[in-house]
Each structure stands twice: as structure tokens, then as C-alpha cells.
Amino acid sequence: MTEAPMVLAEKVSKNFGSNRVLRGISLEVDPGEVLCIVGPSGSGKSTFLRCINHLERVDGGRLSVDGQLVGYRQKGDKLYELKLKEAAFQRQEIGMVFQRFNLFPHLTAIENIILAPMRVKGLSKAAATARANELLERVGLGDKGDAYPAHLSGGQQQRVAIARALAMDPKLMLFDEPTSALDPELVGEVLDVMKELAKSGMTMIVVTHEMGFAREVADTLVFMDDGVVVEAGPPRQILSDPQHDRTRSFLSKVL
């Protein structure tokens, strides 16, 4: 290992009541790396992603982003839960894109993008708007700034959502099945934006069902099932020569 990993998970576990959703996830994501997570639904992919920006609390193991423990502070050998403010501060550097976009429907595209930079980072409206216009241009929606989410197609909404996440200048982007809620003909435009983002050197963790995207863009492909990492490695190798029965049976269904 030459540089410190951006994300380091060591035996991360998470329970919902008696339901063990994550049962010891260990993996590393280096800066600039694109990691794709695939697996059947209910395998814990999304939960793991939500643990990374502390939308869910990690119950066991350790999870750190850029060397900082997520959700906790270590003092001596004791762990202290972070205050809400401190947890929010950690999230500033982690962007997240949701399956259902979750754009704010009462705000225009521009207003969606500038809200957090203004309220959290204290940017002026002019500065935030200028940056928002740049980002909209980057996702190919330079002319849609004044449109409300309901007037945009699913693909356009998701691209605005990506721009909104980028507006906080994150060093890590999380994508939670970003194309699963889209009509098939709209998937491509979102994947193109993500490809461009990956090329620009962004560290990305992508939970996806798009095997083509994973093959083309991912540096590492992780197959998760039942709360554990079954197999991880270069995507071409895993997709063409899976070592594990569970991976083989999953891939035979989706490819």
C-alpha cells in the first residue's frame, strides 16, 4: 500500500434488531479508485453505503474515511459517539446520490444545488450560483437551472442530484443504485456523467446493477451477499471467471 486508503472498512457489522444486515465487511478504497458493489437485493449493499456517511450507525468493526473514524471519536481506548454537528461536519466531504434522486421538489435545479453550499459552507448566493451553473454545465443541463424537478425527466433529475452532491466539493462520492429508478433509455446519460466523473479522478463507491458500467469503469468489483463480501477483484476477472458459486449463480441471472 503506497497511500492511505480513502475508505477503510474492517469487519463492519450492522444489525436491525435481530436481523444482521452486515456481518463483517472488510474492504479498502484508495483515492481515485472506483469501486462497484453488486449483489442480490437485501445483501446489505445499500446499508453499507449508508454507513459510510453515517446515515446508519455502525454497530461493530471499524469504518474510517480519509483516516477519520466515521460517527465516533477515539480517546484512549474508548469510543465516543459524535455529536450531530460533528457527524454533519464529516458528511461535508462525502457526496451521496440516491436511487430515487431525492431532489427537493419545492426548489428549482439551481436552488437545489446552492442550498447546502450556502447554508452549510456559508458561500454567498452569487458564488454558489456561479458554481452551480458550472456543475449543471458539466452534467449537460446548463439550460435547466430554473426548472423544477417535476419538469425534468428522471435522467435529468439524477444528473441534477449528482451536481448537487458535487457542489459540496466532496472527496468521496457514494452512488446508491443511481440508475435503478430510471427508464432504460435514460440510464445512459447518467452513466456518462458518472464515467466522466470517474475519469476526473473522483473516488467513487457505486452500488449498481449495471454490469456493463462496472466492467468498463470500476477498478474493483465487489460481490456482496447476505451481509458479507463474497468476492472482490478486478471486474473483468470476476465477471468472466467468478471463483465462488454464489457469485456464479448471481451473475448467470443478471448477465
Binding site: 458528511r91 431532489l103 427537493f104 442550498l115
Partner: peptide
């Protein structure tokens, strides 16, 4: 108001109060 709204706002590092004021209450 859809839970995803609060989640998206939280993920953007906004505090609970800001989330209420700018995202949840207006809707």
C-alpha cells in the same frame, strides 16, 4: 414529507434545524 428528503438533506451535511427549515417545513 418523504423520508428521502430528510435523508438527502442530512447527506448534504445540513443540520436537523436547517433540514426542517429549508426542506421539510416548506413542503
Amino acid at each position: 414529507v418523504d423520508e428521502g428528503q430528510e435523508e438527502a438533506s442530512t447527506a448534504l451535511a445540513m443540520s436537523w434545524g436547517q433540514t426542517m427549515r429549508y426542506v421539510v417545513v416548506p413542503q
